[in-house]
Simulated scan of single mutants.
Amino acid sequence: MKTSGNTILMTGGGSGIGRELAREFHALGNTVIVAGRTASSLDETIAGREGMHARTLDVQDGDDIARFAKALIADFPELNVLFNNAGVMAKEDWLADPVDLSVAEATVATNILGPMRLTAALLPHLRAQPAARLVNVTSGLAFVPLAHTPAYSASKAAMHAWTQSLRYQLQDTSVEVIELAPPGVQTGLTPGQETREGYMPLADFIAETMESFGIEDTPAEVCVQRAKLLRGAEASGNFDQVFKMLNDSYQG
């Protein structure tokens, strides 16, 4: 699919990976809409960039997704690319008595139900476009979980499986389905992560990722080199070692 002349929706576009990908695609000559809950952060993303637009959206709220999708299609009828990027990540304590399920419930609502609901709302429109792309942002933790964030890891594993299923169901349509699986990247996803040692610098991740999207035949899975250890752990027979290394070294 072409890398310019598209109309792209980027959820979670107010910071981190979403913000920087949105800016990169805009610089290539695309109309880009960033969506998220915090209007001020979205305004920072688009400041001084003609052809970038901001729309508020709470991906945990099914009614808000329905409102948002209807207005978006009306305002941007040429919309042909959806990045399901918005997500939350937090530690959980399953040794607590009682176990607090609030983090797990919010994670499932944001990371799984949010993308599913938004995709369902926009997919008929995307299928009507001559060429469309659906990109689901998962994580290297979809393949080797971080035990301190079990709901997050599980949500990304679920998104990986869902993406594979969508790709199969949509194979004879105009919608190309891509999975983007980042490693740990220096963003504000969790407290202190922007400067955490061992995490990939955001600029490096964006540069390597954009190289993959620039390939005419973009891979079905966009996975930077730093994420391939996790992606291939089970297939290589090294899952137990990689799982132990990942979890023993965690300092979040």
Rank of each mutant, 00 (worst) to 15 (best):
S165C: 05
T187F: 05
K70V: 08
T190A: 13
G192T: 08
L28D: 05
A47C: 09
A158N: 07
N85M: 04
G51D: 10
N247G: 13
T31Y: 01
M210P: 03
Y250V: 13
A86C: 14
A220C: 05
Q251D: 14
T3H: 09
L189N: 07
S139C: 13
T7R: 02
K70P: 01
D93S: 03
V108F: 15
P201S: 00
E194R: 15
N238Q: 15
I73M: 14
E211R: 02
V137D: 06
V242K: 10
R133P: 06
I206G: 07
P219L: 08
N85C: 14
F25S: 00
F76K: 06
I112F: 02
E92P: 08
Q251C: 05
S139F: 09
M210N: 01
G16H: 09
I112Q: 09
N6P: 01
K2P: 06
V224D: 08
D204Q: 11
R49P: 01
T149S: 03
I178Y: 14
M200L: 15
L126I: 14
S212L: 11
L134W: 13
G198A: 12
E179H: 01
G252T: 06
I17Y: 04
G5L: 09
L246N: 03
V88Q: 02
P219N: 10
A35V: 06
D75I: 00
H148I: 06
L146H: 03
R67N: 14
P77E: 15
D240I: 05
T163F: 03
R23L: 15
D172F: 10
T7L: 04
G198W: 08
I46N: 04
L122I: 15
A151V: 03
E176W: 06
T187R: 06
C223E: 08
T110D: 09
E194P: 04
A96S: 12
F239A: 01
G214P: 09
A120H: 15
A142Y: 11
P150N: 01
G237W: 08
H148N: 09
G14F: 10
E92K: 05
F68Q: 12
R67H: 08
A71M: 01
G184E: 10
D63C: 00
V34K: 13
G12E: 12
K244V: 13
V224R: 04
T7C: 15
F243K: 02
D93L: 13
P77M: 12
R49G: 00
I73P: 06
Q60K: 12
M1Y: 09
I46F: 08
S139K: 04
E24M: 06
F25N: 11
L166R: 02
E197P: 06
D240L: 14
F239E: 00
A235E: 03
G5V: 07
M200N: 00
G114T: 13
K244P: 02
L72Y: 03
A131W: 02
A132M: 01
N84F: 01
L79N: 12
Q60S: 15
A142D: 03
N85T: 12
N238G: 03
V137I: 15
N80D: 15
T190L: 10
A66H: 05
A147R: 13
L146D: 04
L230W: 10
P77H: 04
L141Q: 14
A120C: 01
T38Q: 13
S236F: 02
D172M: 07
G192S: 06
A131T: 14
G232C: 07
A154L: 13
A47D: 15
D43G: 06
